[in-house]
Amino acid sequence: MAPIEKVEGRAIPFGLKNVDTDVIIPAKWLKTISREGLGKGAFETLRADPNNLFDQPEYRQAPILIAGDNFGCGSSREHAAWALGDLGIRVVIAPSYSDIFSGNAVKNGILPVVLPQSAIDRLMEVAATDPIHVDLDTQTVTTPFQDRFTFDIDPFRKMCLLNGLDEISLTEKSDAAIAAHEQMIAKTQPWLTPTLA
């Protein structure tokens, strides 16, 4: 996973609320057995309209996406994060996310920034003409017009994103604690391990 610290560039002023993962990547794209190449299917239904935002020359390869409340709701498909990544998105800025989506985003090196609607409204304005700067280290979003918004992020997620860390390797360091839990269960709740009679 590519580390992420500072991202500067055009931001797609998408702004819609309750954008579900079926909109981000329709189900027919879920038939792949690979993580690659899903950018083609990203927002496919919306992009059928030739005037869609995503394919305007100024927003092609834009690294930032601005959205409304509850972004990424619905299905758990990680294909949504893969598709955004393949489209070139490194940062999403929205007032809130579905829990599953924000987890999937972080695991794929995409930073989900949470900012209040008032900040989103301002960034939507700026995004129409100018680039936006996101700094994960200082947890700030800034514009060329002296706007400065700070955001919160879970410290563990921040550390993983900054370092591009693979979570499985981190967890494997806790092998002894996992084994101890398994032994405790085997002793106190042996019925928890399924067997066919």
Binding site: R35, S76, I100, N104, K107
Partner: peptide, 8 residues
């Protein structure tokens, strides 16, 4: 019980 992504 909850849904998870493929990395999870």
């Amino acid at each position: 019980a909850f849904g998870i992504g493929t990395s999870e």
